[in-house]
Computed example of a mutant assay.
Amino acid sequence: MKITHYLYNAFLIEDGSTKIAIDPGQNLWIFKLQSLIPQSEWHDITHILITHGDPDHHWQSDRVAKVSGAPVICGKGLTKIENGKTLVIDPRGRELTSWITYENLYPLDVGESVTLNDVKIEAIKTVHGQISIPILGFKIKKQPGLGERTGIGSMGFKITIGNKSIVNLGDTLLLKEWEGLKPDVLMLPIGGLGNNIWTMDIHDAIEAVKLIAPKIVIPCHYNVPFLWIKKMAVTDDQLFKREVEKLGTECVILRMGDSVEL
């Protein structure tokens, strides 16, 4: 199995003929506004997972689905039913004004699962934190919730391929419900700013590792670009790695485009 990371929470998981794209979003740096997962990888993707509707997670999902023909799995909160059709929030729409259809869609609620081409995908509860973005000396704050685009449809996933399991938590705060998941690989955000802003910070992410008890941890969604700011959600991944390894758990740091083979 090969896992490749593309900044934020964008990953490819490859195992034999299986190729899973997690959060095929957009690079938000103004000097590199393009797909996080390269278009050269799109055609043979077999599964697409979307943890929520923010542009760094969702922006390219419909395009990847069209090129690959892969099924799309997301949280039910990313969808609505209108005139008997299940619609998904438009990846590039404004707020909640635009919704589109996906040809092969599987919305899941917490605890629900689906098995597609011998890959089992189970939905795990997550909660997106509030966002606080410094812009020209001001702070723009967004509080996820009903009627709000930020963090819409927040959901984590446990992916089982053969005898290996991977948990990806998207952008989330710390939740006790994860106790005992025990996956082979855990992907979790560590770039929160404390006080429930954005995601877990290092302290909460370490507590999550203790609860979940994975074999390998891959931190993500930190030191990421946003518009003209080259690094937001700044944190010390080497400190996180040292603290995780004190627990007897392996920690793998993946930069943009880096891979690890299991």
Rank of each mutant, 00 (worst) to 15 (best):
T18A: 12
T18Q: 08
K19Q: 04
I20K: 03
I22G: 01
G25H: 11
Q34Y: 10
Q34F: 09
Q34H: 13
Q34T: 11
S35M: 11
I37E: 07
P38F: 12
Q39G: 04
W42C: 15
H43P: 10
H43W: 12
I45G: 00
H47I: 10
H47R: 09
L49C: 01
L49M: 06
I50K: 09
D54F: 05
P55C: 06
D56C: 10
D56F: 06
H57V: 13
Q60W: 15
S61W: 05
S61Y: 08
G69F: 15
A70I: 01
I73A: 01
C74H: 01
C74A: 11
C74W: 01
G75Q: 00
T79G: 00
E82L: 07
K85Q: 12
L87G: 02
V88T: 13
V88C: 14
I89D: 07
I89M: 14
D90N: 14
D90L: 04
P91T: 02
G93F: 04
R94I: 08
L96C: 02
T101H: 04
Y102L: 08
Y102P: 02
N104Y: 03
N104P: 03
N104Q: 04
L105N: 07
L105A: 11
Y106E: 03
Y106V: 09
P107N: 05
P107H: 02
L108R: 06
L108D: 02
L108Q: 06
D109R: 11
G111H: 09
V114C: 00
T115H: 10
N117T: 15
N117G: 07
D118S: 12
I121R: 05
K125C: 00
T126C: 06
V127N: 06
V127M: 08
I131R: 03
P134C: 06
I135C: 13
I135K: 11
